[in-house]
Amino acid sequence: MKSEKPWIPYAFLLPNALIFGIFVGLPAVYGIVYSFTEWNGISSATFIGLENFKTILTDSEFWTMLFRTLIYVIAVVPLTVVCALGLAWLLTRGLKGSNVFRAIFFLPVMISFIVAGLIWNWILQTDTGLINYILSLVDIEPVGWLSNPVFANISVILVTVWNRVGFFMLIFIAGLLNISPTLYEAAEIDGAGTWKKFRNITIPMLRPITLLVIILCFIEFFKTFALVVSLTGGGPINATRYYVQYTYDTAFGMGEFGLGSALSLILFVIMGIVTLIQWKVSNGGRV
């Protein structure tokens, strides 16, 4: 059945397309253009071809930072996915108070990254933080949660999971509620226990959702910025300075907007490649 006015759907899309075009599309195009220039944000940009990419790719600091970011993402994505799936599974078991716990686990998602980072910064401080104060009550020496590079990374990973797990939990809950109960009933008749049902029904049926969550997690955590900056400032000794902060510091701290744009373009390419690989490996998320 054909609409009498086929332009109507496009008209509805227009406001969003305008907003997207002006605030995302156009700056992205400018970003690509500037990545081939030397520009300090004020004077005219000078076209320098691939020089920015050459500078970046031959800079050992870039590779160190990229490796650091990858370690962070590799640690935080599986942890978030497992925690989110575990919580979603528990909260769809029909246990008493599930709705209350659902709200509690979702609460951190509603806190802005900056505020969440600052709160945990206070809690985790070595000399004045709440956790070390509690440890001191049982005669445990203060831990450098934010001043020791290893502990700082662990702190950032745990705070990230705490802050974001509720959001991905909701996606998993939606996926779990979409699995037909008849599958579980049939498995029970065949004598399957809880673990077998989870392994042979829940996990395969959640495959498209899991892929979506992994891709979303990967993109989001690779771009992590506000939470980490307000929690550790990228320290100590750059131990938690990840990709976007590096880009931000290059562009806005050093006034190297051409280099910053090139870094953004490289980030875009990295995320595109990883997403494609994930898509291929999971066969497009088909069950």
Partner: peptide, 20 residues
């Protein structure tokens, strides 16, 4: 000097102003 300022990002103004 506490290590938490240069390595942990603790706010020195707050440490002094709060009498610590």
């Amino acid at each position: 000097i506490p290590q938490s300022i240069w390595l942990g990002g603790e706010n020195p103004n707050s440490l002094f102003r709060s009498g610590q």
